[in-house]
Design a protein around this nucleic acid. Structure first.
Lengths: 240, 240
DNA sequence: ATACATGAGAATGTATACATCTCGGGAGGG
DNA sequence: CCCTCCCGAGATGTATACATTCTCATGTAT
């Protein structure tokens, strides 16, 4: 089992194709040919079709009108809109959570996750950015989990699955350490305010906070865009 | 080519399966077996798999953890949440449209569609409800079309494709003619206010209007639920 | 009685041959 | 010269045989 993960050829093909798309090896607009891919991945056309079908469900591929699949292409404004939409959906999830009420146990667990994020910066000279990404994602996943609406939850998860729309996509501006600290302080204050809002059944406040929170990602994205030297991995599948 | 529409077996199978699910012939939770369906539809397993995959993209089926597909089941609260979510997404679409600005031509075309809705009630003794459904859907589609964000647009279309979340799903309470007129007057006032808001770049107002507008559907749904005699077609796939 | 092994049957996974469709290039006529 | 039609290469669509995996009922040992 040397090549990638998954126990069936279809799952391996799905994983392999997804990686190529996310890394930008298959740019937006690329038409995918079953036979060519089948040969490259050393499987038959059947699991390749299966894989493409799954990736279309994820939103990474589009079905071409006359059959076949094309890599979906995202423009810069699509990235901005996807972040905005993530904020809107997270806001809706939080509002519904606040309106429905949430258990003390869930509140405690959520607070615990915010505290854990602080831990990534225990040593100010060597912040653990990878752990931060992970912890931040855990926190946002928890917010989704406690939402009482499975419909809202699944649509939120769907948008978050786009690599550039995930809450941890653009964690920080690499260069600017000062700005990085400020960004963290603000984000953590918003995280705690969100918890306060849902605990206090303040739906509108929770919604507004989530939207504003997503704007941090947008800010970081724009800072990255100016910094033309570093190509961010999550932007690999953006064209135009 | 007597049986249903589509030029390929896969498309015919997709249509046929979708109809059965929407009509409730295949209730939520039903496991779909490829061989059985293939025999019933008189095609091979390949187009059946293709069809199931497409329906999973639409959100009508879920992939079972160990392979195969299951008809997605929706609870009553899922229906309510889907309507709420439609309102949220339509609101976001309108807000972005308002913020970006919209051409005079689009405003005029949208107004024209609202006027056309009035036309369905030209004869107050015999309102044309089918035409109303269609015209109302056209209006809402137009709102989606003029949204500058393709990401928001596609997610909105996705949610609207659920039969019970479409803007025309629960047009009116059958019995209550008085309530029907009032509902129409309110809805049309909201339609016109939405246009005014996007024309005047009042994003927040447009968003709030869209959300409140979706509540009409929720009200109509609740009125239908009380009216246990009439089973509404759009509710066929709701279980629990 | 419970837990686990086991095997038969049925389901999905896979490869592949063949059918059909699509689209572009080139020949022929206007 | 341009337009149209036709053809064929190469793509997807389909059927089907075979492989693999899963499920669950059954039986056996502890």
């Amino acid at each position: 089992m040397a090549e990638s993960r998954g126990n069936t050829n279809a799952k391996r093909a799905t994983y392999e194709l997804r990686q190529r798309i996310i890394k930008g090896a298959l740019p937006g607009g690329t038409r995918l040919f079953e036979v060519a891919l089948a040969e490259e991945l050393d499987v038959s056309r059947t699991p390749v079709r299966e894989a493409m079908s799954r990736l279309a469900e994820e939103g990474l591929l589009e079905r071409a009108p006359s059959g076949g699949f094309v890599v979906r292409s995202f423009s810069h404004s699509d990235v901005v809109d996807a972040i905005e939409l993530r904020g809107v959906l997270e806001g809706t999830a939080l509002r519904l959570t606040a309106e429905a009420g949430v258990s003390d146990k869930d509140i405690a667990q959520t607070k615990e996750l915010v505290d854990r994020i602080d831990g990534c910066f225990a040593d100010p000279t060597a912040p653990n950015l990878d752990l931060y990404s992970e912890s931040n994602a855990d926190f946002h996943d928890k917010l989704s989990t406690i939402c009482p609406s499975s419909i809202v939850r699944s649509e939120l998860e769907r948008v978050k699955s786009l690599p550039f729309a995930s809450p941890s996509a653009f964690v920080f501006r690499q260069r600017d350490r000062e700005g990085m600290i400020q960004s963290l302080v603000l984000a953590q204050a918003q995280h705690r305010a969100m918890i306060e809002a849902i605990a206090g059944r303040e739906g509108t406040r929770a919604e507004a906070l989530a939207r504003e929170h997503a704007r941090i990602a947008r800010k970081n994205l724009e800072a990255k865009a100016l910094d033309a030297n570093v190509a961010h991995p999550a932007m690999a599948l953006v064209v135009e």
